[in-house]
Design a protein around this nucleic acid. Structure first.
Length: 199
DNA sequence: TGAGTGATTGACT
DNA sequence: GTCAATCACTCAT
């Protein structure tokens, strides 16, 4: 079964988020190539009040309304960047937040980007993930995935459905039956969830 | 024009 | 387990 990245992304965020698990993020540095395997994602949709796109496009969120495959980087909490991949059709304001990844190749370079050694801490959170990828500003926001930026490659073998955990977020009133958050079962690389209210 | 907010992290108790 | 740091962006005056 051959599923292209394009097929995954154009299907919409709720469909794309679980399918992006196991995909690889590739970025080339002068020192070499780094590869990270996505282990945790979160879907965002214009109908989600928590989504940046909820109130329509602004100067900051404009990339989220661009074509599928566009990178949307935003700055938050005064110190952290988060990376989204735009999904769905142009103008829909859908995206998938990359929350955590497993270092796969170029670990030395990732360690240098992060400034720490612990492999389980290299990309186990949205802010850490961007840092591991060498994202230190929002210059990638609005650009397309690709060799000049960051490449997204399909999984070597698709993640089995039984190994994907879907967790609905709490605290939202709309579409609360839809699970927005996905991660790979038993992966030690998923983000630290101490702060999430998963009662 | 200014106050409030937040899809987090890491340091400290 | 608790809390401060820090700033772009939004919304309300």
């Amino acid at each position: 079964m051959d599923v292209s990245i394009e097929d995954i992304l154009t299907a919409g965020s709720l469909s794309a988020a679980p399918k992006l698990l196991g995909c690889f993020l590739v970025r080339d540095f002068p020192e070499g190539r780094i590869i990270l395997k996505i282990v945790e994602t979160e879907a965002y949709h214009q109908t989600d009040p928590a989504s940046h796109s909820f109130r329509g496009p602004t100067k900051r969120t404009a990339p989220m309304f661009m074509a599928a495959g566009t990178i949307y980087v935003y700055f938050t909490y005064g110190m952290h960047y988060c990376m989204n991949i735009v999904t769905g059709k142009e103008g829909e304001g859908e995206g998938v937040l990359l929350r955590a990844a497993e270092p796969f190749e170029g670990i030395d370079i990732i360690r240098r980007n992060r400034g720490i050694e612990d492999i389980y801490q290299l990309a186990s959170g949205p802010g850490k993930l961007t840092m591991a990828l060498g994202i230190t500003d929002n210059s990638l926001s609005g650009q397309k995935l690709g060799p000049q930026t960051i490449q997204l490659l399909p999984p070597d073998k698709p993640v089995a459905k039984k190994d994907i955990i879907a967790g609905p977020r709490v605290g939202i009133t709309q579409a609360k039956d839809i699970p927005w958050r996905f991660h790979i079962k038993n992966s030690p690389f998923v983000s630290n969830q101490r702060k999430t209210k998963l009662n």
